[in-house]
Design a protein around this nucleic acid. Structure first.
Lengths: 181, 181
DNA sequence: TATTGTTATACTCTATAACTATA
DNA sequence: TATAGTTATAGAGTATAACAATA
């Protein structure tokens, strides 16, 4: 991976969106054949937790990438920078495992961030097997800008959509699910 | 894919879970070296929509797979069977696009379901390019059992966790995000 | 012997281009 | 020419085994 392919692509792509039952329908009159394309029955799917959760997650990640297009940061990269900043002196294993990233998969991710001069690996003097992670000055600056973008463009949108108290309730319920389901 | 690798694997795997800040901590006394491994600061990550949404979604899908282990159905496969049942006479393009699945990727999915005798492709007599999708008798029976498992084991768990009214509020908010974010 | 970072590898998901057979 | 299903392919994401350096 050279830069952030995921972020690059998402800005321009026209991926397969689920058909909107309202907009997707064609009037019977406007189709040239016999039967027009009626909207499909979802059969309760839109009341099922996993279905709606997955769709919401995809939408939110898409929006995140759009908001961060200028910084070329994916949600995962943002979370890594945030954790490295908040936890000075930690090594790769500690940062990765906290985020649920497997150590082998964390290597390429760090290679990417390091090649962009956003963070650096420093060999620990205590334990020369470990790489202590630190943000570079550029990394700190980018993260600061990223936080602002997330707060003002991304999270703010959720407030607009649900309102402050609903937003908090939503996050609380999702946290509960993430921790206890 | 022979059968459902995803479902097979999930039942037995010990994937990388994010460290629980409470349980992950070691007491300073029990570590043999100098400093014990303190829990890392998440730095507001657990209040961020995308982070908690992704984690909740992973947990819910894991639970879904466990609940469906006896039927070997993934969430995506379940949604396909449900849609085929509820929308007789529809072709691959219509079912796939409604679920946000790209047509090329839908082919292997159907090959799998068809090889397990859960559904069948039927050449349309109106338009011989189209494959009308139908459930086999076995497919109908499996889907019926799947619906019961989802309702009694999977969705019921959400009620236990959040309560009925919170559950409905959660689904409503996620739907709103999925549709309007 | 155990752990850290790493490589190699594999499987799933997702995405695009292009082919074929029909229309 | 346009569309339905398909093939081939490529890129992310995620998973495991095993190695070298170090403890």
């Amino acid at each position: 991976m050279t830069v952030s392919k995921a972020a690059e692509k998402t800005a321009e792509k026209t991926s397969e969106k689920p058909a909107d039952p309202a907009k997707g329908r064609k009037d019977a009159a406007e189709s040239q054949g016999q039967g027009a394309a009626e909207a499909l029955q979802l059969g309760g799917l839109s009341e099922q937790l996993g279905y709606v959760l997955k769709r919401a997650q995809l939408k939110v990640f898409e929006n995140f990438l759009r908001c961060m297009a200028s910084l070329q940061l994916t949600p995962a990269q943002f979370s890594v920078l945030l954790l490295v900043e908040k936890n000075p002196g930690r090594n790769q294993t500690e940062i990765a495992s906290t985020l649920g990233i497997l150590r082998p998969n964390f290597v390429a991710m760090l290679d990417n961030l390091e090649s962009r001069d956003l963070c650096a690996r420093i060999r620990s003097t205590n334990d020369r097997r470990s790489h202590i992670l630190v943000l570079t000055d550029k990394g700190k600056a980018v993260l600061a800008r990223a936080k602002k973008l997330v707060a003002t463009k991304h999270e703010a949108r959720l407030n607009d959509l649900l309102g402050q108290s609903n937003r908090e309730a939503l996050i609380a319920m999702l946290s509960k699910i993430a921790n206890e389901f």
